[in-house]
Design a protein around this nucleic acid. Sequence first.
DNA 1: GATCTTCAAAGATCAGATTTATTGCCGTCC
DNA 2: GGACGGCAATAAATCTGATCTTTGAAGATC
Lengths: 264, 264
Amino acid sequence: MAPTDPTPRPAPAAANQRREDVLDALGRRIVAGDLPAGAVLTLESVDASYGVSRSVSREAVQVLGAMGLITSRRRVGITVSPRSAWNVFDPRLIRWRLDGDERDEQLQTLSELRAGFEPAAAGLAALRATPEQAAAMAAAVSDMTVQARAQDLEAYLEADQRFHATMLVASGNEMYGALAGLVDEVLAGRTHHDLMPADPNPEAIEWHAEVARAVRRGEPAEAEAAMRRIIAEAADAQARMAAYDAARPAPGAAPDPETEPSAE
Amino acid sequence: MAPTDPTPRPAPAAANQRREDVLDALGRRIVAGDLPAGAVLTLESVDASYGVSRSVSREAVQVLGAMGLITSRRRVGITVSPRSAWNVFDPRLIRWRLDGDERDEQLQTLSELRAGFEPAAAGLAALRATPEQAAAMAAAVSDMTVQARAQDLEAYLEADQRFHATMLVASGNEMYGALAGLVDEVLAGRTHHDLMPADPNPEAIEWHAEVARAVRRGEPAEAEAAMRRIIAEAADAQARMAAYDAARPAPGAAPDPETEPSAE
DNA sequence: GATCTTCAAAGATCAGATTTATTGCCGTCC
DNA sequence: GGACGGCAATAAATCTGATCTTTGAAGATC
């Protein structure tokens, strides 16, 4: 984000810089498969190749161990663990995978997960949301409508994310609330991957409104059903857009403005 | 330095003993609320109170930071983070909460979560399970039937856990698969907390069989519906047992055998 | 009273030494 | 020939003391 950012600010969180760097680099290498399961390193090789002291490399390795990416054994070294041992819900790990080659697979995985839990969370929200939360959801829907009309996809995305995050927190279950970041990623991925029509489906927005209404009125079954429709529509729209994109030159590398028809 | 320790074997998994001890102790204190959000410690106080060197306390703190339990800032020290910042999906954190005073709340939270995702996972499993996985699910159901008849709750629990874990892995979505441990805890908590009737509901077992059948035949809607019934029945049975238990002396502390009627 | 400067506290990092558990190897014994 | 037991090398785990860097707050300046 903001690649050409000349921020004079010393960055918001540059606390333990080196450890973070090493952690990030190692984590991404593992996630990318550059260090496959079973690969072995030594602490010495780590601090040598990153030019840091043992303290730093050690702490990075500890955190990777806590995430389940590696195990460390005496006399053997640091062994990369099989994927089945990974804490796939760790936000850092999710980010690494979204930034890497596995982006599409990870988004697919997250979408499927979302399909499972969001309707249930909507049902709970209908039972537990405070009036303020219900109002915030309604406000988010209103913003979605406005931004859809303005064809401002970014602003639409923001409102959409706000809607879902508010709903998840309103479920009163902290674990659903903790999944808000994950839904953010799914929604953002859809928008930024050309898997979203230029003007969002009005029906989809109406269903969001329906969820907000059901939450306000305390009708769990209705909230759940409407959320289920939202998910189904999203999957459907995504499939349609993917088919549409597949029939045209890949927009990934150099999006030639000439080939873009109208929506933008 | 093994003062009065005659242990012949050095324990199966005593890798980084000290770090793990400090991590565990600190984590549990935070989870228990002994160190509330906003509380501040210094590294020095940590290694002083646990009698370890800076390296050890520092690494423990790093891991806690990665879990979102604390943040560390220069000149300030180590600050306990509010619960909203915690990585509530971290297995270690879940275990701490299950072992502490919050056990019931955590189980409730996990149960709600499970209600959301398990039906969806069952649907996916119906689309993706290998014949071996489908067979394993059927075998687990068969074991459940046998153990229910034998009134062996522990063995029943094991088969039940095996059924759900297999189904989650068979969903083909690694994030669902990673939730198997969580479901294990929910099921175990139910059994070990006297929230489970001495002989399991035959209907519940039949629904498990239905899921297994639907998975084998590749019928997602049926699998999902049957799983939904399982969840609903579990919630129902649990509520009934809780009401039943509430009407009798708490079995927690000293289970007086006299007051136990028949089922055991 | 607001801004600037200085200082000290506390983590971050480094570096060297020491301890301890593992593992592969080798020799011995059955 | 294979199993058991001791040996030594190895790499992590831990300790320790020192230095660097950031930053909150007290004090000085206007």
